[in-house]
Nucleic acid binder design. Sequence first.
DNA 1: CTATCGTGCTACGTCTATCGTAGTACTTCT
DNA 2: AGAAGTACTACGATAGACGTAGCACGATAG
Lengths: 117, 117
Amino acid sequence: MVSISSDVIRGYNDTMILYLLLERASYGYEISRQIKKLSEEKYVIKETTLYSAFTRMEKNGYIESFYDEDASNGKRRTYYRITDAGRQYYKEKCAEWKLTKEVVEKFIEEEQENGDN
Amino acid sequence: MVSISSDVIRGYNDTMILYLLLERASYGYEISRQIKKLSEEKYVIKETTLYSAFTRMEKNGYIESFYDEDASNGKRRTYYRITDAGRQYYKEKCAEWKLTKEVVEKFIEEEQENGDN
DNA sequence: CTATCGTGCTACGTCTATCGTAGTACTTCT
DNA sequence: AGAAGTACTACGATAGACGTAGCACGATAG
């Protein structure tokens, strides 16, 4: 069964997260479920990958963290919102994706869905 | 200017090399030039990346190395040919690529080529 | 004759995104 | 009370990519 290896999705985890943050600010667990859902269960991001992406992107200024002040109690969530730099970065990654796709596809053979020919 | 980062092509260097070896056995320098040419100069594989891919793939049994017996003298080239396992692996990577593309594209916004609207 | 350029590698160390494992903490369901 | 779900953090390992450097040989130019 074909599944997505970390090496091929690498470099697009950030893009996926930013895409979801374009809609609205969110937090780890929610982002994780949204990725799973939007990818139709084809891809599930690992927790450690997700949180380290948050840390990295905040350090790079692509996202900002904040706490929901209304949260009465319970384990406090860390929310993230996208910054202008993040929006810019997202756009660049989209452009890069198109280029990458173009290049990779020159090396991919269309598999004629074979009837055992 | 948009260029392809190593993190996004990671995991497809092997695929590109194998694709070229499907055609015929080849060696480092030639593969390198073919990748550059076929990608229309959009991607140039680094020497170290290429040779470490050869080593890795030979260890994994996807390719086999041999020397050109006819080569009279000069620096001897190491040729590589693809194995059956390599052909199988290539096919899997092609299938994986399609899946990856499907997933990633759900997170990519089509950039309406803007006339500064 | 020497220098440079192109070809064809190898060695070695660094970087970094991802991931495995584990642990903490709080809530809700049973 | 215990388990399952939510919401993280810490720490170390892995592996592909890459920077730098060097070696070896042939051909071409000065």
